[in-house]
Design a protein around this nucleic acid. Structure first.
Lengths: 125, 125
DNA sequence: TAACTGTACTAACACGCATAGTACAGTTGT
DNA sequence: ACAACTGTACTATGCGTGTTAGTACAGTTA
């Protein structure tokens, strides 16, 4: 269910966070669904339990997951909303990236084509 | 001429690189123009000379600047081309960001508007 | 010659990521 | 009640990287 890229510069715990968010965004996981336990996932990914806990506790802080001692870690009711709002904030990043591309000489057409591609391609991974 | 954000997670030397690239992209600096000396810039930004050197030597590796012992560090002839090609590669980043936004529930219209904004707004900073 | 330039090198420190190990408390099924 | 699971907390350690500090050397220029 999860996959870690050991060569990536982004920390393992962040990779996990991103993947959980992606699963929710894709509708593969919904509010109430249980995430793998800290220990089982740590074994599956061959990482330390503390690393998983860090990811889960951060997901908890964000309002994307809810950890319940003794029971497990579950997707929170607020998850979808949180991600939707986070997405809106990323629009700023998009604006800046487009500006940056335009500055470095990439044509308007190339940019618009890339956007179109991103919008049309349904899903992979 | 340069500004460092100490709170940012991106290393100081990378911030310098980005700003040099931006200056070239904006046409503010052109091939042959001299960058501040390692020592003077280190004082101006209150960072270690080694940090500046790291930035300059990386800019040299990229083909954006050319360091000449005894003389200084200058914008390379190849700078514009290098940045133009780098920009094209960032189109992939753009595609992925758009896909990510679409996934998290941001509408096509919102995305296209952000792109339009990025394309239209002339320049600031 | 003096004052500037880039370059090279070692040592040290700080911080964050990750590991290792242990322990405690709540929940669940038998 | 017990065993087996859950999340949580805490300390200690190792490691990589970014940064600082200090010194030194070589080329350029006035």
């Amino acid at each position: 269910m999860f996959r870690i890229d050991g060569m990536s510069r982004t920390p393992v715990y962040e990779q996990i966070i991103e993947q959980v968010e992606k699963l929710v965004s894709l509708g593969i996981m919904k509010a109430g669904d249980q995430l793998p336990s800290v220990r089982s996932l740590s074994i599956e990914l061959s990482v330390n339990p503390n690393t998983i806990q860090k990811a889960y506790s951060e997901l908890d802080s964000k309002g994307i997951a809810k950890s319940v001692p003794g029971k497990g870690c579950f997707i929170a009711e607020s998850a979808e909303d949180v991600l939707k709002n986070a997405g809106r904030k990323k629009l700023t990043t998009l604006r800046e990236l487009v500006k940056e591309l335009a500055l470095s000489g990439v044509t308007k057409e190339e940019i618009e084509k890339a956007v179109e591609d991103g919008l049309s391609i349904p899903v992979e991974n």
